[in-house]
Design a protein around this nucleic acid. Sequence first.
DNA 1: TCATTTCACTAGAACGATCTAGAAGCCTGA
DNA 2: TCAGGCTTCTAGATCGTTCTAGTGAAATGA
Lengths: 332, 332
Amino acid sequence: MTEQQRRPTLMDVAQAAGVSRALVSIVMRGAPGAAEATRQKVLGAARELGYRPDSRARLLRSTRTKLLGLSFSTAHAFHAEIVDAAYAEASAKGYELALGGVTSGRPEDRTIEALLDFGSEALILISPTLSSDELARYAGQVPVVSLLRNDVGELTDSVSSDDYEGIRMAVEHLVSLGHRRIVHIDGGTAVSAEPRRSAFRAEMERRGLEPAIIAGGAMEEDGMTAGNSLGPDMPTAVIAFNDRSALGLIESLRAQGLKVPADVSVLGYDDSMFARLSYVQLSSISQDAPLLAAAAVDRAVARIEGTQPPGHVVRTPHLVARRTTAAPAAGG
Amino acid sequence: MTEQQRRPTLMDVAQAAGVSRALVSIVMRGAPGAAEATRQKVLGAARELGYRPDSRARLLRSTRTKLLGLSFSTAHAFHAEIVDAAYAEASAKGYELALGGVTSGRPEDRTIEALLDFGSEALILISPTLSSDELARYAGQVPVVSLLRNDVGELTDSVSSDDYEGIRMAVEHLVSLGHRRIVHIDGGTAVSAEPRRSAFRAEMERRGLEPAIIAGGAMEEDGMTAGNSLGPDMPTAVIAFNDRSALGLIESLRAQGLKVPADVSVLGYDDSMFARLSYVQLSSISQDAPLLAAAAVDRAVARIEGTQPPGHVVRTPHLVARRTTAAPAAGG
DNA sequence: TCATTTCACTAGAACGATCTAGAAGCCTGA
DNA sequence: TCAGGCTTCTAGATCGTTCTAGTGAAATGA
């Protein structure tokens, strides 16, 4: 029904403009070596014919693809923010992004293979779940940058946020408000749950405080469950593993008739869109995901274009104080 | 530092196996025309060398790419669910997906061009914002399927949910519970806000009820603002434009000291992950996004492989009753 | 027995770009 | 006037596949 006409090639443009294929190629990629007059003539002909270079052919010949592969998980809403930021930075550096989604039915390696097939010159993996060895195998083919996870071995680059420092700031913030009975609802088996857990323990002990830790997870449900188990001796402040868990916790506290932050202060982690919701206004530790994403893109581009060895970039998070943290009630 | 060795080609495998390039090609693509013994020999050699076909070269030669372009918006969390479902269905049909993100700094047409550059044989656009004319222009090149929006002209396929029927079900549900004073907080200028608004008006009038409509939007803030403006004569039930708006509304009602659903019933739209949160349990109209996504993929594949004309698929949504809707208090 | 078909395989031309090497034209300076 | 050096342009090879049109050998049929 609909007529799918053959798309014009370099040859067509060359004939229309009365020059050689090679010259059209030169003009199309903006390379030096064409007179201004012919350049205009060729561009005119190309526009006339609606010519668009065929990237497959182009990529086949020139080893450069100017393409960065980015894998993200559809299960994590905040990955979308990272994708956003990565697009912006890649575009600024003159690169295009190939996106690969990791879903429950589509494991990470499958996604990576697809990204490589598209011709990605480097890979940026958000919180990769592969082992260091597997990552190293891919790193033998193209530069690989792990985002938000840093225990990836020496062959893989990483850009991450300093979990210890984040937790330290969280404790600092609450202690300076006057809290002493602080609980950490941890992330269970989630990525970076362990470093945050041990950072909490170390930091509390350093201050001579009791490091109470409750098993949690990355989702609202985990926060609720943990919140319900707080019952007997309620702390005056809680540091959740992340914002979503914090939300569940707040809901549980509400159900128990407790006010946040009057009765209990709650601190999230990630400064995600959940924390920023106007009716939530959750105090949170920001990893500045967009900045990290930009750094990861920079890193990938540097690896592609330079000859520097893999490295690990660690950025310092910062605290965003909103409405869920305050000084404890007198005598808390 | 890291040694990026040249990847093996068909030629390398051919030499290792002692056969011609063409035969290796036949074996690699599983085409008929090779003896079982040689097939095994070739596969062995390929495995040995770690050969992976170069998709760029492959795609250049064979016009088929088996690639579907899917554009989604990073601003809409539920697009992630659609991506999930689309991956599954595409994979089942033997296609790969090329993802393109639409962000604030990256308009839809830019994303589409990138998807075409990757060699997409068809495009699936989630809630496209382009005009019918612009869509038609792309539809002249490849089949284009609009997902969740159906006013896209005759050259573009569409797969969408019946908004009228969705709103009808919403009203029906509330009326059958005993509600008569029902308000619709609309979606403002969002996609499908208008059809839902007029469906609400028509359906309420058909039942001899007053169709009260309040200006809203697609986000939590819009629901809160609208909720705060309800003040004077509070209805017994509200149909929000979507789940996020419903969440904001619920928050506003809470702040006003009203209980949901005891004082006011709230119905969302989309049955998104927000509605399913265990502490929310929002009653909602489900568009069954995953099913729609699968249908869109089917449609795209059918268009690619067959010669049928563009068409519009409309599916019926269904109601998911959870904890935010109930009979009104006596005398409500 | 010999023509015909089938099967397994191959040589070489595509695909649509880029890249290399070199040619033609014009300028410059001695 | 001519060597040398630009600038502008072109022919042809090339990237790694798939496709077309075969070839040769074995199997089949009358």
